[in-house]
């Protein structure tokens, strides 16, 4: 077992989860040009939904995952309809503040319903890891990578060939024009929130299997995934995946050099550096970079 290989493996596993969450941020941003701050909390709720299904309703984990994804998709759509849609044309500040409030609201609700104890979805005893390229990877971690890759391929095919996927890309490209040629923009936005939220729930369940579930998990994971979306170029689907793995790797290799207490701060540092020097991200366009600099908050 070599340390370098292990750090890279850990980075890839964390990156897979960040990528899943980053997709939700980037898809919503692509269409609405708005940061869905409550996305991390949808992830947390998804994990708790699955936890409830497994521990109180006795469902097998795969069924619980599907139920959690469906419920989270519903939650995402409700959030969009109730809190964001009425504010779609009222500047940038109002939806952002609503989103922050929503995220605090969901976090507090989870704290009241499920308590602050740390929970987990881990099944059975911790299995012995497999040694791959000199890194120890458990079966659960292999499952995380396999699920993420599978979902990413399905999403890619959906966006590329399905009619709805094409409509989503059209809305991302130019929302007013998409509306003009008869695409039901509200429906497309709803679907975007549903897909993003379902992916977040999937990520939440995977985190629950691998690590722990707690009411505050959404905010840290959310910020890291948002960083991933910015690193890759916000609004860009491939960028989100690339950014997810990049953030996962930077973070896990970074703790080799600085005290581990600062692990969560690494993502923030990457985010701030990225926003300052290249707000358009690795795969972003020049247009977005210019937009990121001049437009006023109330514009």
């Amino acid at each position: 077992m070599s340390v370098t290989a292990q750090l890279i493996a850990n980075g890839i596993i964390a990156g897979a989860i960040y990528a899943l969450v980053a997709l939700g941020y980037t898809m919503v941003y692509g269409i609405l040009k708005f940061i869905n701050f409550a996305h991390g909390e949808v992830l947390m709720m998804g994990a708790y939904f699955a936890y409830t299904c497994v521990n109180y309703l006795g469902m097998p984990i795969w069924l619980a995952l599907l139920v959690a994804m469906a419920l989270s998709a519903l939650l995402g759509v409700i959030i969009e309809r109730v809190a964001y849609k009425p504010l779609r044309y009222s500047g940038r500040l109002a939806p952002l503040i609503t989103a922050i409030a929503l995220s605090i609201f969901l976090q507090s609700m989870a704290l009241i319903i499920w308590g602050s104890e740390i929970r987990t979805l881990r099944q059975g005893s911790v299995s012995k890891g497999n040694e791959i390229f000199g890194a120890v990877i458990t079966n659960n971690q292999l499952l995380i990578i396999a699920t993420t890759v599978g979902v990413l391929i399905i999403l890619h095919l959906f966006l590329k060939y399905a009619k709805l996927g094409k409509a989503m890309r059209a809305a991302t490209d130019n929302l007013p024009l998409a509306a003009t040629i008869g695409i039901e923009v509200d429906k497309v936005i709803g679907i975007t929130f549903a897909i993003g939220s379902a992916l977040a729930a999937l990520a939440g369940v995977l985190v629950g299997i691998e690590q722990n579930i707690e009411p505050t998990m959404g905010i840290t994971l959310g910020i890291k995934a948002f960083t991933a979306a910015v690193v890759g170029g916000i609004g860009n689907i491939q960028g989100a995946v690339l950014g997810g793995f990049a953030v996962g790797l930077i973070e896990n290799i970074g703790i080799w050099f600085i005290p581990s207490g600062y692990k969560d701060a690494i993502a923030f540092l990457v985010l701030v550096i990225m926003l300052i020097f290249r707000p358009s991200g690795i795969l972003g366009t020049k247009k977005e970079e210019e937009m990121g600099k001049t437009e006023s908050l109330f514009g």
Binding site: I35, L96, F226, G261, L271, E295, F298
Partner: peptide
């Protein structure tokens, strides 16, 4: 941070706040 626009500025200041807390 001041080179950034509205919501980017918000996230960047949030990031700095968390770094200071760390």
């Amino acid at each position: 941070c001041l080179r950034l626009r509205g919501d980017y500025l918000a996230i960047a200041t949030l990031g700095f706040g968390e770094i200071i807390r760390a």
